[in-house]
Design a binder for these strands. Structure first.
Length: 428
RNA sequence: GUGGGCGUAGCUCAGUUGGUUAGAGCGCCAGGUUGUGGUCCUGGAGGUCGCGGGUUCGACCCCCGUCGCUCACCCCA
């Protein structure tokens, strides 16, 4: 038997997350869930795959995600599906299908799939937390969504995250702007980078997103979106920025921020982590999508959302040196039983039913071995049952946090164990 | 899709100009006299040196291929 090379492993770009590392995931999700609830969002669960049209129409054919990164497949009924590459399109599809009363606010946690070469902070399957709010174009909604995101990053301990913000305008003013931009690019197209020299006309806005010096130089000299917004869009944007400022959230105006999805209108934003040295420094982002519901066959309905990558968030926590654990998953007690009887079976059942996280050793190991296991488990107390305790109907409690050898070891009447343990645990 | 780096015990890594039974630390298991962890001491288990082929008297070490990991470009979470 050759055990050194397992026949199967997680697919390229995917990862298993085991305990104890997974406790950080639980913590991140729990923090987000609690915050989302406070802001009035309800959990939504949608399928991980959708008719490919949901993403084609929603995200846009010209986007990188749709044009070259989707996991597309046909099922046995010859229907064409795609694994979701991001969270928003599915939620809006669900909104259109169910027509819940507006304003409608939903949060989600989901895997997302993109076929690309893995790299630091970039995977083929990653996980996103996010919210979507539909049914209002009120800038207050923009402020709420962005504030939720900001407070979330604060809550998980991040300090060096900046908020970049921009407005894409609505159809008309953006349309006019795109024409201006296209005219500018037509004049200077020859100076663009290799990729965009010929390809810019498909979607001129993409050039703004390009980080190559050639494209940056050309676009910097050209027209900028914020200067060409209509009055409504300008006011909307101003109110968002002012509202954020009123609650102490500083947003950096970033005129070239257009983001990779076609559905964005008006407010767009991105959270970048300065602690990450790599190019993958965006921990979250989002924006308004006032035409998306229509594009997916629903009534005209404004909306705005935010998404955050869990893996990347954890990378940032690491890079920032955030030391506090979001969630500890260690047992409260560890039952050490050397009698070999069924006493520990009954005690463990009582403890667990009483809300106490309790573990034990298996295989009838020596007391020393069981104590070592108790120590390694991280349990606060060891509950000892040996022949003496068994005969006396008692349990010996040992505080594993104490470093003293000659510490006091109270014995507790068997019938009082659960109550005593619970008392001691809530004490601190 | 393109390019760079790397693949030696569960983990992090050593391994001298190719030379006989491949090492360490951590982790794991068991002991250190009669029921007690975390420190210390002793011992033990665990590797076809990613896989395949080639060069050689001989390969963990050199060459080719392949798979995988990783980083970068592009883009994003």
């Amino acid at each position: 038997m050759n055990e050194s090379t397992p026949p199967f492993r997680a697919p390229v770009g995917t990862h298993d997350v085991l305990a104890p590392a997974s406790a950080q995931w639980e913590g991140v999700v729990a923090t987000f869930a609690s915050l989302a609830h406070r802001y009035g969002f309800g959990l939504i669960i949608t399928p991980m795959f959708e008719d490919v049209g949901v993403f084609n129409r929603g995200i846009g054919e010209s986007s990188d995600v749709v044009s070259k990164e989707m996991y597309v497949f046909s099922d046995r009924g010859q229907r064409t599906f795609a694994l979701r590459p991001e969270g928003t399109a599915s939620v809006v599809r669900a909104f259109v299908q169910h027509r819940p009363p507006t304003p409608w606010k939903a949060w989600y946690v989901t895997p997302a799939f993109r076929y690309e070469r893995p790299q630091a902070g970039r995977y083929r399957q990653h996980h996103q937390l996010g919210v979507e709010a539909l049914g209002s174009e009120d800038p207050e909604l923009d402020i709420e969504v962005i504030a939720l995101a900001w407070r979330f990053f604060e809550a998980v301990g991040l300090r060096r995250v900046r908020l970049l913000i921009n407005s894409m305008g609505h159809d008309e003013c953006r349309g006019r702007y795109v024409e201006l931009l296209a005219a500018h690019l037509a004049l200077h197209g020859a100076q663009l980078c290799d990729e965009h020299r010929r390809g810019w006309s498909t979607n001129p806005l993409r050039v703004l997103d390009c980080k190559r010096p050639a494209c940056v130089a050309v676009t910097e000299a050209g027209p900028m979106l914020p200067d060409h917004l209509c009055e409504d869009c300008r006011n909307h944007f101003a109110r968002v920025v002012a509202g954020l400022e009123s609650i102490g959230i500083e947003a950096t105006l970033t005129p070239r921020l257009v983001r990779g999805f076609d559905y964005y209108t008006r407010t767009t934003f991105e959270f970048v982590a300065d602690a990450l040295a790599s190019a993958q420094n965006a921990v979250g982002g989002g924006g308004r999508y006032d035409r998306l519901a229509e594009q997916l066959g629903g009534p005209p309905t404004g909306g705005i959302g935010f998404g955050c990558g869990i893996e990347r968030l954890l990378l940032v926590r690491d890079a920032e040196g955030v030391s506090d654990e979001l969630l500890k998953r260690t047992p409260d007690v560890f039952v050490v039983d050397t009698t070999g009887s069924g006493d520990s079976t009954v005690l463990l059942d009582e403890l667990r039913r009483g809300g106490v996280a309790a573990q034990r050793a298996y295989g009838g190991r020596s007391m020393k071995a069981q104590m070592r296991a108790a120590d390694h488990s991280g349990a606060r107390f060891a509950l000892l049952i040996g022949p003496t305790e068994q005969a006396a109907g008692q349990v010996t409690m040992r505080d594993l946090r104490s470093g003293e050898f000659a510490q006091a070891q109270p014995t507790v009447e068997r019938g009082d164990v659960v109550a005593v343990v619970r008392d001691l645990l809530t004490e601190k």
